[in-house]
Amino acid sequence: MTDVLRTTEAARLPRPDAAALLSAYRTMRTVRTFEERLHEAFAAGEIPGFVHLYAGQEASAAGVCAHLDDARDVLASTHRGHGHCIAKGVDVKAMMAEIYGRASGVCHGKGGSMHIADLGRGMLGANGIVGGGPPLICGAALAAKVRGDGGVGVAFFGDGGSNQGTTLESLNLASVWHLPAVFVAENNGYAETTAAGWSVGGGSIAARAAAFGIAGESVDGSDFFAVYEAAGQAVARARSGGGPTLIEVRLERYYGHFEGDAQTYRAPDEVARARSGRDCLTRFRQQVTGARELTLEQLDSIDAEAARLVDDAVSEAMAAPPPTAADLETDVYVSYR
């Protein structure tokens, strides 16, 4: 593949049916509502620790994870992992409780925002180490290859993570071992506060695929269908023994690197322009209603459903107890018996 920004006009996979479209929108809306609520809760002092929000990037997680299943496929995330977790099917209420540091959390309140994991859903975990996910996915993909079950390993990382040695070594290893792996570089323009246009050599993450002899392309992250198409081809390639793929998703980050980031490194109107002109949820609504695949009433109903779910998740999290001193030494070691 060449490094061409894919749009829906280039789509070759069958268009998702109405049920799949509703599911994709539900994922994206749930992520957006979840993140916006966390933005408010963190500002109110309700949440301990750091929080890195995914708002604006929803089409990437939804478009990729639409092709994955729980039984075979595994995913490694980043410090900005809420969207990936929700798209992979991790329980929203258990996630919220985890972020609030409650014992009912998916990791019993011990991991918080940056370490949400659910192995039963194939979520190896969010990761506070930049570039920490790709090596894990090489191991998972190798296991799937040995088992011969058609499983795929997917690693998400940012433009900053694309420059890490762990990521480049993983791309090389996946190529040499011909692993069923998909590497998704979410280029939101900033590695913390450093512009990708300055820090990414060559100006393209996807173009690096050629150095490892694997498939690679860039897609427009405001277009769910473009991500869905590229990811579908990459997952199908991996399942059929065609080897790994590197996908660069170019998208927008609506909030700072972390909550409390003043974002003085961005133009004053940058986020407003992104929200008004490149919002993936707005574009999805226009695409599916314009094609008469879904109605505004159906989409609005999902909006209300997501709002209720997140409201309930917050209420239940705030009412749940925190871990106790007796929990300190549990979940430390794995028992293989």
Rank of each mutant, 00 (worst) to 15 (best):
V4F: 14
P16R: 09
D17S: 08
L21I: 09
R26V: 08
T33R: 00
L38F: 09
A41K: 05
P48W: 07
G49F: 07
V51E: 01
A61C: 15
G63W: 00
L68H: 05
D73K: 06
H82D: 02
G83D: 03
C85Q: 11
K88E: 06
V92M: 13
E98F: 06
G101Q: 12
A103C: 13
H108P: 06
H108Q: 04
S113I: 04
S113M: 05
G128M: 02
V130N: 07
V130Y: 09
L136K: 08
I137F: 03
G139N: 11
V152H: 01
A174T: 05
W177Y: 13
L179E: 00
L179Q: 01
A181I: 02
V182C: 06
F183E: 03
A185I: 09
N187E: 12
A195S: 13
V200N: 01
V200K: 04
I205P: 00
R208H: 13
A211Q: 13
G213Y: 03
G216I: 00
D223F: 03
Y228D: 03
E229P: 11
G232R: 10
G241A: 02
G242Y: 05
R250W: 02
L251T: 14
Y254G: 08
Y255K: 08
G256S: 08
A267L: 10
D269V: 14
R278W: 13
R283G: 12
Q286N: 07
Q287P: 04
V288G: 08
T289C: 15
E293G: 10
T295A: 07
I302K: 12
I302Q: 04
L309S: 00
V310T: 03
D312A: 15
A313F: 10
M318E: 14
P322C: 12
T324P: 04
A326P: 11
Y333G: 09
